Simulated scan of single mutants.
Amino acid sequence: MDLDMIMTSRCHLALVKKDPLRRQVLQVKGCFAGSKAENLLEQGDMILAINKKLVTCFRDIEDACQLLDHSSNDDGKLDLTILRRGNEIELLVGTDVRDGNGAKRAINWCGGILQEPYPAVRALGFLPEEGHGVYVARWCHGSPAHRHGLFALQWIVEVNGKPTPNLDAFVDVTKAIEHGEFVRVRSVHLNGKPRVLTLKQDLHYWPTWELRFDPETAMWRRKVIKSLDSSVL
């Protein structure tokens, strides 16, 4: 954002001197849901300085974060000076380490593809309070998930009244469900609205299986968790 559009602050001249050509500061567009900055930074905040050093470009933020790797202080926090509604505020904001590798595990259950929410979903700024580890990324045509409305853009937070905060808990609950049984699923949509639906498990055409990424071999491995003709693995 152009500095001339910002309400005058005590570091205005210093920012102009640091970057006279672009005359800009960085503005917070949003925070990743579940991040340490989520409840501290607000949309529209303007970042003036980090650890008392002026900030005018993304490289300045990268340099400040890289210094954390060489710091004796291992709390991973940055001292931010921001401009919020015309007032300068000092905030101590924690940082999050993300490897950028994307999804490493996915489960196919009743024709729905379930996984941890990927970064693009977290960037929208919402995660259910009940648990956010079982996100419906997509569904297959003709599957129980399709027929009964378990579509993408929602989280499964309960199965038959049992919480499913993550994929491991979800597998533990669904392994006990047999072929042909009706399953009560409670979900929360990306818009925050809860929903309850019932679907019928079909292990003959839609067995439960899992894909895992093996970082040592850089390959995906598929394992059947439960099917009509096999025992629970």
Rank of each mutant, 00 (worst) to 15 (best):
residue 28 V to M: 01
residue 31 C to Q: 05
residue 31 C to M: 09
residue 31 C to F: 08
residue 31 C to T: 11
residue 32 F to A: 14
residue 33 A to C: 12
residue 34 G to C: 13
residue 35 S to R: 13
residue 35 S to V: 10
residue 35 S to F: 12
residue 35 S to K: 13
residue 36 K to P: 13
residue 36 K to W: 14
residue 36 K to I: 14
residue 37 A to F: 04
residue 38 E to I: 05
residue 41 L to P: 01
residue 41 L to Y: 00
residue 42 E to C: 00
residue 44 G to C: 05
residue 44 G to I: 02
residue 44 G to V: 02
residue 44 G to R: 01
residue 46 M to R: 13
residue 46 M to N: 13
residue 46 M to V: 11
residue 46 M to W: 07
residue 46 M to G: 07
residue 46 M to F: 11
residue 46 M to D: 10
residue 47 I to K: 05
residue 47 I to W: 04
residue 48 L to F: 10
residue 49 A to I: 09
residue 49 A to F: 09
residue 49 A to H: 09
residue 50 I to T: 10
residue 50 I to A: 09
residue 51 N to G: 01
residue 52 K to E: 08
residue 52 K to C: 08
residue 53 K to D: 05
residue 53 K to L: 08
residue 55 V to W: 04
residue 55 V to L: 02
residue 56 T to G: 09
residue 56 T to I: 12
residue 56 T to E: 12
residue 57 C to H: 15
residue 58 F to M: 14
residue 58 F to D: 14
residue 58 F to E: 15
residue 58 F to A: 15
residue 58 F to N: 15
residue 59 R to T: 14
residue 60 D to V: 07
residue 61 I to G: 03
residue 61 I to Y: 04
residue 61 I to L: 07
residue 64 A to D: 01
residue 64 A to H: 01
residue 67 L to R: 03
residue 67 L to H: 03
residue 68 L to K: 03
residue 68 L to T: 03
residue 68 L to V: 03
residue 69 D to T: 12
residue 70 H to S: 08
residue 71 S to K: 02
